[in-house]
Amino acid sequence: MKNKKPIYLFLLILFVLIVWQFSGLVFNLNKTLYPTPTNVFTAIFESENLFLDLQTSILRLIFGSLIGILFGVLLGIITGHFSSINETFGKFINFFRFIPPLALVPLFLLWFGIGEFSKVGLLAWTCFFPVWISSHNGVKNLENKYLLVAKSLNIKGFDFIREVLFKGSIDYILNGTRIGVGIAFSVLIAAEMIGAYAGMGYRIFFLQSVYRVDKMMGYIIILGILGIIIDRLFLLISKKITPWKNGE
């Protein structure tokens, strides 16, 4: 019974593709505005810029996310462990969490131009907050008994931060990272639509202006697939990093 599930999913996808393919014929739809699956897949293969656009978007996402994750984890550990810092600095930073990242796109473009810095910076900003909050909660929720163990063994300083606070909160951190990167991905596409010369978001916006709906849909489907791959990759990495949870 367990092995039959992928087949049902495959059959469902096939059914949707068939309905989509033949609805164009049945309802005599305009092929330019409502391309069929075969139009879309042909368009994907004809896209000369696809590889470059994918590479550009993925690299922006990686760099922006890494910066956001680094600062998010660092600040999360600090505010989670030192309540005095959280009461001042933490609460101050928290105000910025409620600003929608997309509202900052015009500002970042004016300040940093249309180059990579504005987009990577925006992604770092976007990814930072979920990672910060999750890391903070992970450290805060670390059971007091583990802090007592560290105290009894005189584990201090960087060893304490690395071996107890960081590793003890790793599943919270991973969860926050997964959410942060997911949101950053959406923001990336929107930011590329407004200010970029390459990338998946830029290309989709450009294709709209030249009425290439078939290529647009191809790019959108690839974005969906990319999102699934990123998410699955996260699950795989999480499993590798937290082997003690695999037996639970």
Partner: peptide, 10 residues
């Protein structure tokens, strides 16, 4: 400790 308190991640 009463509950050994081993770090589960190690």
């Amino acid at each position: 400790f009463q509950d050994h308190n081993l770090f589960p991640w190690k």
